[in-house]
Simulated scan of single mutants.
Amino acid sequence: MKLIVKRLEVRNFKVFEKIELTLESDHLVVLDGPNGFGKSSFFDALELLLTGKIRRYIELEELTVDRRSLKPGCPWLFKQARENDWLSIRAEIVVNEQSRFLERAASKAVLDEHSGVTDLRLPLYELVDFGAERDEAISQEETYLSALLGDQYQRDFELFHYVEQEENTRLLKKKEKDRQGQIAHLFDIGDIQDKINNITQASAKIGNLCNPQKKADLKQLKDNWETARQQVLPAGSSVAYERMIAVTDQPWDRDVLQFDVQ
């Protein structure tokens, strides 16, 4: 699945009272500018629209804030927002070459009454076009987004689309197993990694059988086998074999055995 953001409109969000961006390229888009000019806010807006949350705000709140002391108000709301204003993130996205129009929004009145961001959920709307009025919010949001963006859309967003200062060190801070899993998912090499793991395990088991002691044990077994064979079947003698079952034709039942490369 390929997702392209074509247009983004932000109202009363963080440092933006209103801003609209049109992204002409279907490939790499780079935002460049000094600190404090809204680069991170752009990605925060996308994350809020597509996942319903801004992860770094939630993590910061969980680490530093006693929830009993939270005061009403939303840190994402533009500070000069008026009473009847809405915080709104609206975008045109192209999924599998088809344009879809989404908006996530909530009124200032609702946001002013809410405390904290951990359990804050802004409704998601599907629009008929970029400039359309919002209608009823999507009720089964997770089901809708999974159908539109894929079952792992939240994880995909964190790995593919969330670019922010120091976020490139996030994987390095994870446990090795988690880091390998996310990198494998990022580059879609999960199947290859599974095969490598199987080969590594097989190699370890075979390696345990190839040490000098195992070779000596194997030679001793072969010597014992040869001694027993000579006792049971002296040199120059033979054993007659009689086929007992003729219903099937198995390679091992033939007078002359034939082996393929398998």
Rank of each mutant, 00 (worst) to 15 (best):
L124G: 05
S238H: 11
I245P: 04
K215C: 14
E97I: 04
R68V: 04
E92L: 12
L23H: 06
Q230S: 13
D260T: 09
Q250S: 13
G236V: 08
V65H: 03
L77P: 02
R90P: 01
L46Y: 04
T118W: 02
L218T: 11
D223T: 14
G190L: 15
T143V: 15
K108P: 02
K14C: 01
A216Y: 08
R170E: 12
R179G: 00
T64A: 14
T51F: 03
K14W: 00
E226N: 10
L186V: 05
A81S: 06
F157W: 05
R68K: 08
I199Y: 10
N198H: 10
R170A: 07
R134S: 14
P123W: 06
D156P: 02
L172G: 12
V261R: 13
I138P: 01
L48S: 12
I54V: 03
E166K: 15
V239C: 11
R68T: 09
I199V: 07
R254Q: 12
E61A: 08
D255H: 12
L171D: 04
T22I: 10
A216H: 05
Q262N: 14
G150I: 13
K205C: 07
V256H: 09
C74H: 02
K214P: 00
K173Q: 12
D44M: 00
E97H: 03
Q165N: 09
Q230L: 13
V15M: 05
V15Y: 01
I19E: 03
R134F: 11
R56I: 10
E20M: 15
D194I: 09
